[in-house]
Simulated scan of single mutants.
Amino acid sequence: MKLLKLFVLMCSVLAAPAFAAGDAQAGKAKSAACAACHGPDGNAPAAMYPKLAGQGAPYLVKQLQDFKAGRRDNAVMKGMVAGLSEQDMQDLAAYYASQTGTTGQADPQWVEQGERLYRGGDPAHNQPACSGCHGPAGQGVDAARFPRLAGQHAEYIEAQLRAFRAAGRNDLGDNVVKRTNDADGDAVGMMQTVAAGLSDRQIRALASFISGLSE
């Protein structure tokens, strides 16, 4: 049932309308305020912040829209996007999508487990492979707004998986950081469902492996 639900959710996302193209040159000028955290070219120097370089524009637009609408909760980003217009979001997304992302380095102790989970999932526990949505090389799927993962900071990936896991479980208190902006209406979102079954060790292994992926 879990895999069937994920398939239905994937189909609904794939059917989402296409995004209008932004102006990358205009986005570069508008990105000055973003550089302190995400770097001048979108390759964030600090591991707690996501790399935006090479990320799919539709995914980036959705995240900016979600921050502004309160569907994704982050105090810093809420302030940053408050004054952005839809065109600003499109332009910023186009700029970062045009940049080249850097590759990190996976911790050797986690590579085998991380690769196994990423490419094959855990069938015994009905856990799907990450590559099914994010691609074998972590390149993502722009049309479906599935993000590029290749080379992303392990610390950031781990934090997001934990936040999705917290949102997908019912036994955690309100003081736990949760991420719910993958939800489709009132349904539990795809990433919440996937992450809910991951252990701490699995999350650490996946995050480390993903950081070393390159397209």
Rank of each mutant, 00 (worst) to 15 (best):
D91L: 11
G70C: 06
G101P: 09
A163I: 00
N74F: 10
D41M: 15
A205F: 03
E115T: 04
I210N: 01
I157Q: 15
A75T: 11
Q139V: 06
Y59G: 04
A75Y: 02
A16L: 15
G189I: 11
S31N: 08
V141P: 00
A106S: 04
G39L: 00
A196L: 07
L4E: 15
V176A: 01
G212S: 03
A97P: 12
T103F: 00
D182W: 03
L172R: 08
G56E: 10
D182R: 05
F146R: 06
G121F: 05
E215I: 09
K2D: 06
W110M: 10
Q99G: 05
G132S: 11
A20D: 07
P40F: 10
F67L: 06
A47H: 00
G83N: 03
P147R: 04
V141K: 07
T193L: 04
Q139N: 14
M191R: 03
S12A: 04
D174A: 15
A75C: 05
A106D: 00
A16T: 14
R162N: 14
F209D: 03
A33P: 09
M1W: 11
D88L: 12
Y59N: 07
V111F: 13
T103I: 10
A26K: 13
C34S: 03
A26Y: 03
A46F: 05
D66R: 10
A16E: 11
Y49N: 15
Q113A: 14
S31T: 13
V76C: 00
N126A: 14
R119Q: 06
H153I: 13
V81D: 05
A106W: 00
D73H: 09
L92Y: 12
G114W: 11
P147A: 14
Q160L: 12
A46C: 00
C11S: 09
K28L: 05
L198P: 13
V8E: 13
L64D: 02
D171V: 08
L213W: 09
L92V: 13
F19T: 09
E115A: 07
D171Q: 05
G22T: 09
A124C: 02
Q105L: 12
H134K: 12
K2Q: 11
Q90G: 07
A205H: 03
R162L: 06
G70F: 04
N181L: 01
F164T: 01
G70Y: 07
P108N: 12
Q192H: 08
K2V: 06
C34E: 02
D91Y: 10
L213R: 07
R72C: 07
V188L: 13
G120S: 08
V8G: 12
G151F: 00
H134Q: 11
